[in-house]
Design a protein around this nucleic acid. Structure first.
Lengths: 342, 342
DNA sequence: GACGTACTGGAGAGCGCTCTCCGACAGCGA
DNA sequence: TCGCTGTCGGAGAGCGCTCTCCAGTACGTC
């Protein structure tokens, strides 16, 4: 078995033409059942597996898509990307995408675009026609990749609304609604002196969660809520909580714009001898695995990441299938997951 | 620009033949410098990008490799894989692989093989010639994928030694040496009543870390060390610590076989009012981001995951380049990272 | 019985590239 | 002058597949 069997071999074994075998394999047009059977046996007999390259050459479809995590400054100390996975949130996105695509026989190519050079490499790779489309998780406001993608008119779908309007489809969660959920819950359980640790205020996710929280709090009679800005990392959550505690020692409820910051805040609270939820209630955002790693387990706004990732896959496939499909966005409703921290 | 430019177009623009353009692009043989220059200009002019499918068809190389995370039972509650990323360890592997491969213009296809069906899908995908080779991170002892890969004689490299001997190259860390490092450190800082939370004892990583720790402890005069088995998750670390504390309330030092379990153990210790490292010292394993998320920050045995991942890439490329390259394994030395927990 | 129609299978032309030949030509020694 | 060697560019044959024709057959209709 030096050379793997080709369509030609199968055709010979089945006593039909290449075209017929191809039709059987791709399920195109009616082929006589008896012949279909013969072909299938021949395929099994020869151990034939289609050559994807040859197929791609003529169909102009690769059957692969790219999953790009973009915009992370990465860490300066290391030439290795992937630190983003320190936030379990990205693992969920990856899992969601794979979970949806896998039954379709499609597997994503994992790419990181964390520096200008790697961004160019990524674009080059995409333009070379290696993939049919891209799913992009962009994590900074200045990321230029969404625009480059749109300009290249490569089918693409974004996770989260881009900071600047760009003609590209995206999927997002109702950040404002999530912020409101957190505020309502905090107030409902008797919180009188709320505070919040926001995400970075140059990205929509940061702005909107904060806005939603503040607006709802205003409705509940808290027109001003102390706020410390973080950047979605555990450490930034600690720093922010430290500051909040120093400036407003009587805080009795905190909304952190993601679970990782909430986790950091919890650590600081404990260091200061504040019990949770006794002295201070804490609500996070995302419902990532970090929420379960907290003690007490975190009450948090659930980001239906897996469903969103699946929707991204669905949307991308639609764009690939129908190049003229209009730019679309879909917003998912967040829900509150009540655990023990609030 | 309905149809993208082809080699033929470039050749025409440069006034040479297709073959010459191909030679210039692939840097093969001597081509007159003046002609090279002309060709390069023509490429720039036409905006030519090579068609990977056509190239693959003739070279029989795809220029892609698979990154497979295999053997996870996944979670029963969800059709989505990727929960493995809850352990930041896997993010590091992914980052390390991408970091090494990316400068070479190679990007991995991300696959999860968490059930028998998906395992078959993965094998089918690989056999279809979609990739040149595979990097496999197998996380359970009964995983059959390594064997299937070896049988398919597809170039592959494993992360960690397989539970059963299989003719396949792998990269691993000195688990025993790591266990010894932990033991020595614990003893050196005065620990008298050590205990350990082991990983699952059906995988080498679990067995060897424990063995290395026990052996070193024996040398230090602790022939018997209480041990509770965990499965590398945070929760299992909690459960194990609970048990250890119940059975041996006077423990003053713990070695957890990975950071996540150490993090869980720390949580329990705190609940029981034990200070760390005052009452109990804690040493983890991996030096993943979880170690930094601990309070106090975790002293841990560093698993040089990124370097190991890079080596996997290097090894895989060698296997792809030279199909007859003998099966190889490379063991990395662990080091101790001293922080505050011990 | 002649014709139109529907359906099925085969022939063959590429898809864009690589790579082996082969020919052209220059340089050099005899 | 002839031929030999070495260098460099071109011709052209595929790589394995899809898909558009086209031919053959069966059947129904008038």
């Amino acid at each position: 078995m030096s050379a793997p069997p080709t369509l030609e071999d199968v055709a010979r074994a089945a006593g039909v033409s290449r075209a017929t075998v191809s039709r059987v394999i791709n399920g195109i047009r009616n082929v006589d059942l008896a012949i279909q059977e013969k072909v299938k046996q021949a395929i099994a007999l020869t151990g034939y597996v289609p050559n994807q390259a040859a197929r791609s050459l003529v169909t102009r479809r690769t059957g692969t898509i790219a999953l790009i995590v973009s915009g992370a400054g990465s860490s300066e100390e290391s030439p290795f990307p992937g630190h983003v996975f320190a936030d379990p949130f990205f693992g969920r996105v990856a899992g969601g995408v794979v979970g949806f695509l896998r039954p379709l026989g499609i597997y994503p190519i994992l790419m990181f675009a964390d520096t200008p050079e790697t961004r160019d490499q990524v674009i080059g790779y995409l333009r070379r026609g290696n993939v049919d489309g891209a799913i992009l998780v962009s994590i900074s406001a200045e990321d230029t990749l969404p625009k480059l993608l749109a300009d290249a008119s490569l089918p693409a779908v974004l996770f989260a609304r881009p900071a600047r309007p760009i003609p590209i489809s995206y999927v997002d969660v109702g950040h404002r609604a999530g912020g409101k959920l957190a505020a309502d819950h905090l107030v409902a359980r008797g919180c009188r002196r709320p505070a919040t640790i926001s995400g970075p205020l140059d990205v929509p996710a940061g702005q909107d969660r904060l806005a939603g929280f503040q607006e709802a709090m205003a409705v509940h009679g808290h027109p001003y809520v102390p706020c410390a800005e973080g950047n979605f990392t555990l450490h930034s959550g600690e720093v922010a909580m430290e500051r909040l505690l120093a400036e407003h020692p009587d805080i009795d409820g905190v909304f952190a714009a993601n679970d990782l910051m909430a986790q950091g805040a919890l650590l600081v609270l404990r260091q200061h001898g504040r019990s949770v939820p006794g002295d201070v209630a804490m609500v996070g955002f995302d419902d990532s695995s970090a929420a379960l790693a907290c003690r007490p387990p975190l009450t948090t706004v659930r980001h239906p990441v897996e469903d969103m990732a699946a929707e991204m896959g669905r949307l991308l496939l639609t764009h690939i299938e129908h190049p003229d499909h209009p730019v679309t966005s879909r917003i998912f409703e967040p829900t509150l997951v009540i655990r023990e921290s609030a």
